[in-house]
Simulated assay, not measured.
Amino acid sequence: MSESNKMAGGMTGINRAILIAAFVLLAAAIGYAIWRDSAGDSASAAPEAVAAPSDQLAALEARTRKEPNSPDAWMQLGAARFDLGDFGGAATAYEKAVALSPDSAGLWSALGEARVMASDSDPMPAKALEAFDKAIALSPKDPRARYFLAVKKDVGGDHKGAIADWFALLEDTPQGAPWEADLRRTIEQVGAIHKIEVAARLAGTRPRPLTADEIPVAARAIPGPSRSDMEAASQLPKGQQDVMIQGMVDGLETKLKANPADVDRWIMLMRSRMTLGESAKAAQALKDGIAANPGAAARLKAQAQLLGVPGA
Rank of each mutant, 00 (worst) to 15 (best):
T186Q: 13
P237Y: 13
G13K: 15
V50W: 08
E61Y: 03
G78Q: 04
Q241K: 14
G9Q: 13
Y94V: 02
L300V: 03
A212W: 04
G251C: 04
A291H: 15
I290H: 15
D262C: 03
A59L: 06
L57K: 07
P123C: 04
A49C: 12
A150S: 01
T92K: 14
Q56E: 06
L77M: 05
D72S: 08
P207Y: 13
D142E: 04
G157N: 11
L252M: 03
D154R: 00
I215E: 07
A51V: 06
A131S: 02
E171Y: 13
S234W: 10
L286V: 09
R206H: 04
R115V: 11
Q305S: 02
T186C: 05
P223L: 03
R273W: 08
M270N: 01
G10L: 03
P178E: 02
Y32A: 09
K134E: 05
A135G: 07
D250C: 13
M11H: 11
A258N: 15
G89R: 15
T211M: 10
V24T: 05
A33H: 11
E48T: 14
K127D: 05
A118I: 05
L57E: 11
G40T: 07
M1N: 13
G112A: 01
A212M: 06
A52Q: 05
P209V: 08
V217L: 02
K160P: 02
L25H: 01
A177L: 12
R115G: 12
F23N: 12
Q76G: 09
E67H: 09
A59I: 10
Q284K: 05
A181Q: 06
E171A: 09
A29N: 11
Q76N: 11
A58D: 00
W179H: 07
G10E: 08
V151W: 05
G85R: 00
L170S: 09
I187G: 00
D120Q: 13
S109P: 15
M244I: 09
I14C: 13
A181L: 08
S101F: 12
